[in-house]
Design a protein around this nucleic acid. Sequence first.
DNA 1: TCTTCATATCGATATCTATCAATACACTGT
DNA 2: ACAGTGTATTGATAGATATCGATATGAAGA
Lengths: 101, 101
Amino acid sequence: MKSAVQTEDLAAKFKALADPSRVRILELLKKPSCCAVDVPGGLCACDIEGQLDLSQPTISHHMKVLREAGLVEASKIGQWMWYRRNEKAITELAEAIRSAV
Amino acid sequence: MKSAVQTEDLAAKFKALADPSRVRILELLKKPSCCAVDVPGGLCACDIEGQLDLSQPTISHHMKVLREAGLVEASKIGQWMWYRRNEKAITELAEAIRSAV
DNA sequence: TCTTCATATCGATATCTATCAATACACTGT
DNA sequence: ACAGTGTATTGATAGATATCGATATGAAGA
């Protein structure tokens, strides 16, 4: 039987995806980088903000949720935050949903 | 680009999984049937209730959420509701999370 | 140091959700 | 018809969440 922590952890990750804006953000992060940070893959917060019609604090909140769920990673580069998908965690979640859940 | 309805639909499915009790229910539904309904796979509501330490109305609520998300199917057999996983929808969601999201 | 820009945090609020007790509904056997 | 059983709905409530404006933090450049 699955442990309670595993179940809780799965639910927490799904909760992070349980919002259209956050699903959209994960879509956007698939695109090649187009922000000031010259790194392939990922985006910085201002670019995400430019595409979602949400306020800057709201975007910041969503990124925090995605990060704490482990689905997105972030690094500070200069004054920008560079966000990118954690493909490993995403793939593991996809596996869990099919077999383990 | 993904359409808004697709994004909304994905988020709706994730929202259905964004609760430990409902993740647990999907686990339970993997087990072979052990309820009065003599059909392989799936469970009836009373069996789920017996394993989750939640009230009957709460279980009923969770099953409704899972059904409306399309992740679980239900049939009435006599006075029992027979619930089973919609493996097709679950697999599609697993695909979406990895590639499309 | 001062200003500017990018991002995070705070405080407030409206909406949503999980939960239960009570009740209604539906099916079965007597 | 009636009683019993399984499930759904209703109504209420406590807690969570998405959102924003205002403000704070932090980094870069003049």
